[in-house]
Design a binder for these strands. Structure first.
Lengths: 162, 162
DNA sequence: GAAGATTGATCATTCAATCTTT
DNA sequence: AAAGATTGAATGATCAATCTTC
């Protein structure tokens, strides 16, 4: 990896921060996934879908709205919902007003699954992340994340950047 | 998601920071992956392997050392190397001293591929991340990442946590 | 039996193509 | 044709089982 252009390369401080960040993000996601799976038979993706549905008062959402909330591709969500439906966590329902669309809804089993999984998952997040940081660092993490997201939103050529 | 225990739950500030962080990390990885793929026909995983190999003076490493450097499972690396070998980016070589083990080495083509890809990738990282942050935030990101990693290392039951 | 590594099965993600309704 | 959604094929990641050498 030749340092072809001093201006374009990362300096020492940046390089260190970058490697630490990438490693942290990958490892954290892997650990959270494994703990969730082991404690509750739910993947992070399952959990994310269930959170979106429990955020709505009726536990129901149009599929495209769900996809926007998760910022997932339609086909990813479609496959994910098919797997979750097969396991009885959600069910699909056709939409009366617009027959192109459809709804997904939490089943009783899906609601039970997230209620059982949430406390442990939150505890894991607290233990691995927030217990390791000062209050200032928590605020800094929020601000840094927001800044990077804003940059991506601004720079993405199309509206649907993911 | 009932707030079953005030102590275990996340407060407002934490919740916000956490959602922003998770979304940032996922989106950033997705965007980096797509840009790398589009510009160079390399995935992030390919790039990570090539970086490890170019970090060694001879462009060669024992497979287990590589796995430790990447902190990947053995089987993930094995599959990855098989795909990369098929594409001519690396080659495997048996090990003289210990016939259980083997080496992987960069091919000329592999070296050319990462040299072609690196400047663009670094430019993308700079544009999406470092250009969006102040110097203090860069330092904070490094410190936060290091703290979280240290916590995971300390809390992981087994040595090989991933 | 343990260390170094590979293999095969299964599941998740992406991409392009498709289908239906508007 | 565009919007809402699904499908199938190809690629990637994870898990358990295996194989060889120490």
């Amino acid at each position: 990896m030749a340092n072809t252009s001093a201006a374009a390369w990362l300096d020492e401080r940046e390089q260190e921060a970058w490697r630490a960040f990438i490693y942290m993000a990958e490892t954290l996601q892997a650990v959270l996934n494994r703990e969730l799976q082991a404690d509750s038979e739910l993947s992070s993706a399952d959990f994310a879908v269930l959170v979106q549905l429990t955020d709505r008062s009726d536990g129901r959402a149009r599929i495209l709205e769900l996809a926007r909330g998760l910022r997932w591709e339609k086909s990813r969500l479609s496959h994910q919902l098919a797997r979750m439906e097969k396991r009885g966590l959600v069910c699909r329902d056709s939409c009366g007003e617009d027959r192109r669309g459809s709804y997904v809804a939490l089943t009783a089993q899906g609601r039970a699954a997230i209620e059982a999984a949430a406390p442990g998952h939150v505890a894991t997040v607290r233990r691995l992340v927030f217990d390791q940081l000062t209050e200032e660092q928590v605020d800094a993490l929020g601000a840094i994340s927001a800044a990077i997201v804003a940059g991506m939103d601004a720079q993405c050529p199309t509206e649907e950047c993911d």
